[in-house]
Design a protein around this nucleic acid. Structure first.
Lengths: 315, 315
DNA sequence: TAAAAATACTCCATAGGTATTTTAT
DNA sequence: ATAAAATACCTATGGAGTATTTTTA
C-alpha cells in the first residue's frame, strides 16, 4: 500500500507538456502559470530520477524513456478519469461533453440526422464536434483531445481500436449529357474509362475513388481535377460535364430532379466502412455507446450489413 | 487538461480500506493514523458525491457503485505504479520485489530449481514467495497483494488471465507388495479399481486425482484416506500399502531405490497444466517475464509441450 | 533581442498528527 | 463495556502565485 511520490497534477502537467511541447502553452491549458508547471515537471523528473524532456531544443522533445513514461501517464490518467465517469453513468444523467472528430465527407450528411433526436432524449449530453481529416483525428485521439472519431476503416494503427458503424454505398454521379447518363447503372469498367472529378488530397474518399478506378496497380487514368468538398465535385459535374463518385448519405441530399443522374455501380456496390475509432482505455464508454446507438438508428437500415456490396479500402 | 479533485493517496486509502475492511488495519497498512484515513475517505466520498462504504455494518461493505469505483481505482493505481516500474526496467537493474503465490504441490519441488540460478543472474531481484491454495492465490491476486500466481489451470475467472508454463506428468506410486508393482506401467483402468491415498481438500491436485479415477460421473471408488502433503501420501503408500498419484517434479525427489515403484500411466500420460496467473493490468511485466524464463529453463524440456499426454482438469 | 524556461521568494491550503468524543456490538 | 470510527484542533509541507533572472534561437 505505497503512495507514489508524485501526484496526479504532475502527470497532468507532463501530458499537457507533451501535447503542446511548450511550457507556456501547456501551463495555460492547465490553468496554471508557467513557473508552476516548470517546477512541477522538474520535480517529477527528480522524483523519477530520469530526464523526461530534452531541454534547449526547439521544438521540445521527450527522451526515449520519457516517451514511455508519457504514454503510461496518459493511460493511467484515463483510468483515473474513468472513476468520475462511472459516477456520472451510475446517476444516468449523461451530463458532460463528448469530444467527437468526424471526417468532412461524413459530418455534414450524417450528423444532422442524429443531433436532434439525440438532444431530445439526452438534453444534458453535449456533443463537441470537430470536422477533421483522418490523419488529424488519429493525432487528436492519441493525445486524448478527442474521445472518439468517426471515419472510414479499415485502418491499421496499433494504438487505436475501431468498431464498425455502417457500410455506406458509393454511387456514380454523371452529367445529363454524358454517354453513361442513359444507363440505369454504371459498371466498374465504365468508371475506369472515364474522366473523374476528385477531392483534394487528405480526404480518404479521394483515395477510395482512386483505388476503385485504377486498373490493377497501374497509373490512374483520366483523373485530373480536384475540389475540396463533395459539393464542389458535384457542381463540377453539373457545370462542366464528366462524372464523379459520391457517398450515399451525401447523394441523398441532391435535388430531387437530379437524382436520376445518380447511378448504382455494378457488378458489386462499392461500400465505405464507417467506424468509431478510440484510443483505449476508453473513458466515456456509455456516452459513446449512446452515440453509436443513435447513429445506427438514424441511418438507412440496409447500411448496417456489409453484405450489400464490397468494401473499398483506401490506404 | 483537468486535474481530478481527488488525489492518489485517497485512492490508495480507498483500496486499502476495501482490502482490509477495517479503518484501523487499512490505516496501518498505509502507514498513517486511523483519523487521517477516515477523513480522507470521507472527503473522497464528498468529492465524488457518492457513498462508497456502508458504515455501521460489521464487516464494512462497499456500496454497489462503491465496488465499481474501487475496482476502477485498483486498475488506475496499477497503471500509475507501472510508471515507476518502467524506469526500473529501463535501467535494467531489476531491483525490487516480486510477490509470488504458488500452490503447495508445486512450490517445494519447482522453486528450488530456479532460485539459485535466478539469484546469480539477477541478485537485485527479490522474490517474495508465499505458498497458498489456488483459491487463496486468486483472492490475493484480485487485491493486488500478489503480482503473480503459479498454479494449475485451466481456471475460468473473468478478471484474471493466465499463461501456460509447462505440462507436468502425473505418475502412479505403488507399494512394493501391491499387485501393480510388477507392471512397468499402470492403466487408467487399474487406477479406477484401486484404493488411492488422497490429499486433503483445498489442493487442486486432489481434485485432479479424483477426476482421473472416477468412472464417468459416478461416485469415487475405493478412495478414503487423506493427507495434507504429497510426502504424506508417499509415506502412507510406503508404510501402509496401496497406491497414490504424484506429480513428476515431486516424484523426482523420491529416493533412488524407490523410483522403480513410480509407474507411468497408460494409455495417455495425465498432465497438469502449470501456468502463471495475473490480475491485469500487469505492473511488473519484465520481472514476471524473467521468472517465466527461469522456470521454463529449469524444468525438464519435455514438459514444455502438452503433446506428451492429456491435460487433466480439476474443476 | 525577443521569447522561453528556470529561479527566488512568499503565501496559504490541506494532509496528517494527537487528543478526544461518539457510535456500534 | 469495549472496540471502532468520527470529530476537533494544530502543525508543517509543498503547490501555486508574482517578480525576476538566465538561456537559447
Amino acid at each position: 500500500m505505497k503512495i507514489p511520490h508524485f501526484s496526479l497534477s504532475e502527470l497532468v502537467y507532463l501530458v499537457a507538456l507533451d501535447t503542446y511541447r511548450h511550457f507556456g502553452k501547456a501551463a495555460e491549458a492547465c490553468h496554471v502559470t508557467q513557473p508552476a508547471l516548470s517546477t512541477q515537471i522538474k520535480k517529477l523528473e527528480d522524483i523519477l530520477g530520469v530526464r523526461i524532456f530534452n531541454r534547449g531544443t526547439q521544438p521540445l522533445e521527450p527522451t526515449p524513456i520519457g516517451k514511455q513514461i508519457i504514454e503510461q501517464a496518459r493511460k493511467a490518467l484515463k483510468e483515473i478519469y474513468r472513476i468520475e465517469e462511472l459516477i456520472v453513468e451510475e446517476k444516468r444523467q449523461h451530463r458532460g461533453y463528448l469530444n467527437v472528430g468526424i471526417i468532412p465527407t461524413l459530418g455534414p450528411y450524417l450528423l444532422p440526422r442524429i443531433l436532434i433526436p439525440l438532444k431530445e432524449r439526452y438534453p444534458e449530453l453535449r456533443l463537441n464536434i470537430r470536422e477533421l481529416f483522418t490523419e488529424q483525428i488519429i493525432w487528436h485521439l492519441k493525445r486524448d483531445l478527442l474521445d472518439v472519431g468517426i471515419l472510414v476503416t479499415p485502418l491499421n494503427d496499433e494504438e487505436l481500436t475501431s468498431e464498425p458503424l455502417f457500410y455506406e454505398p458509393i454511387l456514380a454521379y454523371v452529367h445529363p449529357e454524358h454517354p453513361l447518363a442513359e444507363q440505369a447503372t454504371v459498371s466498374l469498367q465504365d468508371l475506369k474509362r472515364s474522366e473523374m472529378w476528385l477531392l483534394t488530397e487528405g480526404h480518404c474518399f479521394r483515395n477510395q475513388v482512386i483505388n476503385l478506378c485504377r486498373e490493377d496497380n497501374s497509373f490512374i487514368k483520366g483523373v485530373y481535377y480536384e475540389s475540396g468538398s463533395l459539393e464542389g465535385v458535384q457542381k463540377m459535374v453539373e457545370n462542366y460535364g464528366g462524372l464523379t463518385l459520391l457517398p450515399a448519405l451525401m447523394a441523398e441530399g441532391i435535388a430531387q430532379e437530379k437524382q436520376r443522374y445518380l447511378k448504382p455501380i455494378t457488378p458489386e456496390t462499392p461500400l465505405r466502412e464507417v467506424s468509431l475509432l478510440f484510443h483505449p482505455p476508453v473513458v466515456k464508454e456509455t456516452k459513446i455507446a449512446i452515440l453509436k446507438e443513435y447513429i445506427q438508428k438514424n441511418v438507412p437500415q440496409s447500411f448496417l450489413s456489409p453484405d450489400i456490396g464490397a468494401i473499398v479500402h483506401w490506404q
